[in-house]
Write a protein that binds this DNA or RNA. Structure first.
Length: 439
DNA sequence: TCTGGGGTCCTAGGACCC
DNA sequence: TCTGGGGTCCTAGGACCC
């Protein structure tokens, strides 16, 4: 194992250090290749839940011109002819590999902001030469230990580090590591001039077209716009982006409590439409229990919930039912949550309609145990123990081993998610470990 | 036949209070 | 005819991200 990083010279700026973005190249495709080296060099796509559409592409698949978000059923015949391999998304595997990457990054600095499954921002002191070298070391280390390639972008702010990472991925000469501060001001201007404003972090399609109507098309033009004027005409987020492009740090990723999110959502499309309230009852029972499990996992309770079901966006008229409500008391147990979800939604479900998707969101989350129980209808303590019991049994015997009511049936319902090209969960399940054969 | 699933932050506007 | 004003909280919806 390489030696821990040497201490570096402190940065003269107010906040210590600059921002380094470490970001996995084609993350899901890279994870699929960890236990399947034969997929190296092969055009590979990973599909969304239900094997619906393309959510990740290897560089070979990108080179073939496969776009993000294309429905698989439209692509499949063409893809077969071009030797494209497809995989169902295996979030358990990706999550496990991501956790290992973040643990490695944590050895270089405690200042790690985990931004998504495949990206983290590090704050580090050091000269451009020192940080570039450290970026190269991190890349070698992750590649060596996990077999996953990462790119590294370095800049004074999060927005500039993102921009640098874009360059690190796309310019072959950089070796996947780029530091914007290694360039002279005139060169930085040229880089910003060559960057379409839509490529910036925080500028999406809508903003892009509004900016274009003002004649702002490049990152350089946006940087040179007046942040006060832009704040009035747009919003504070865009003003911050401008300041960040000028090197003033004003975006932070708040991960003080990274494991505790403010909202929990569980929603899925069905493999075949659900057409009657009895089936929808089963859907809600299973989805609500999934959401409740996540809730207990992060040691929170919910006070409110939101439930929806909808027919296909692609078949008019679209019928959508969506209702919010309160739980009788802040809760994390499946009985209370399933009942509340069914009470809200079920009598609004119209028999005969072809629902393709439903979901439940838990709202007003708070740490478990923090609420004073003044409510005369305080919950039955047995319910709290029930949730913990379900979790323990499912941890020991496998997910779905124990469920309540409709969620307890063992045969998979026919609307359940389709995942026909799923790889093994090689890092989290004994039964699915990779097999090595000596020849 | 078959078109993803999470999240975050910000703003505007209404309800309500004094 | 004239009929305050400022503050807070909540919610819905927009925009963006991966």
């Amino acid at each position: 194992m390489p030696a821990p990083p040497a201490p570096l010279t402190p940065s003269p700026s107010g906040r210590p250090g600059r921002v380094m973005l470490v970001d996995v190249d084609s993350c899901y495709a890279a994870c699929e290749r960890v236990f399947h080296p034969e997929l190296e060099g092969v055009p590979l796509v990973v599909l969304s839940n239900n094997d619906g559409c393309v959510v990740a592409r290897s560089s070979e698949a990108k080179a073939l011109g496969i776009e993000m978000g294309v429905p698989w059923f439209k692509l499949k015949a063409w893809a077969d002819r071009h030797g494209v391999v497809a995989r169902s998304s295996n979030y358990e595997l990706y999550g496990s590999i991501s956790g290992r990457i973040m643990a490695i990054l944590g050895e270089y600095t405690p200042a790690v902001e985990v931004y998504s499954i495949d990206e983290a921002f590090l704050r580090l002191p050091g000269s451009p030469a020192e940080l570039t070298e450290m970026g190269r070391r991190i890349r070698r280390r992750v590649l060596h230990d996990l077999g996953v390639p990462v790119s590294v972008g370095i800049g004074a702010t999060h927005t500039l580090a993102k921009l640098a990472s874009h360059g690190a991925k796309h310019s072959p000469t950089l070796g996947h590591v780029a530091d914007l501060d290694a360039y002279r001001p005139g060169q930085v201007d040229a880089i910003l001039e060559a960057t379409p404003v839509a490529d910036l972090w925080g500028v999406g399609r809508r903003l892009d077209s509004r900016l274009a109507s003002m004649g702002i098309r490049t990152a350089r033009q946006l940087r040179d716009a007046d942040p006060a004027v832009m704040r009035r005409r747009f919003n504070v987020t865009l003003a911050r982006t401008i300041l960040e492009l000028r090197g003033t740090d004003c975006i932070t990723i708040d991960d003080r409590d990274a494991d505790r999110t403010g909202q929990i959502m569980f929603s899925r499309s069905f493999s075949t439409p659900v057409t009657d309230p009895t089936q929808m009852h089963q859907v809600l029972a299973i989805y609500a229990q999934q959401a409740a499990t996540r809730l207990r996992h992060q040691h929170s309770v919910a006070a409110g919930l939101w439930v929806f079901a909808s027919t296909s966006w692609y078949v008019s008229p679209v019928h959508q039912v969506s209702l919010a409500g309160r739980l009788p008391h802040p809760a994390d147990d499946p009985v209370t949550i399933v009942k509340a979800a069914c009470d809200l939604l079920l009598d609004r479900i119209e028999p005969g309609r072809r629902y393709v998707r439903a979901g439940i969101s838990l709202l007003d989350l708070a740490p478990a145990g923090a609420q004073p129980m003044l409510d005369p209808f305080s919950p039955d303590p047995r319910l709290a123990r029930l949730g913990a019991l379900v979790d323990r049994v499912n941890a020991a015997c496998g997910r779905g081993a124990l469920g309540l009511g409709w969620a307890g049936i063992t045969a998979p319902p026919d609307w359940q998610m389709r995942r026909e090209m799923l790889s093994n969960r090689g890092t989290t399940h004994w039964a699915e470990l990779a097999t090595v054969t000596a020849t």
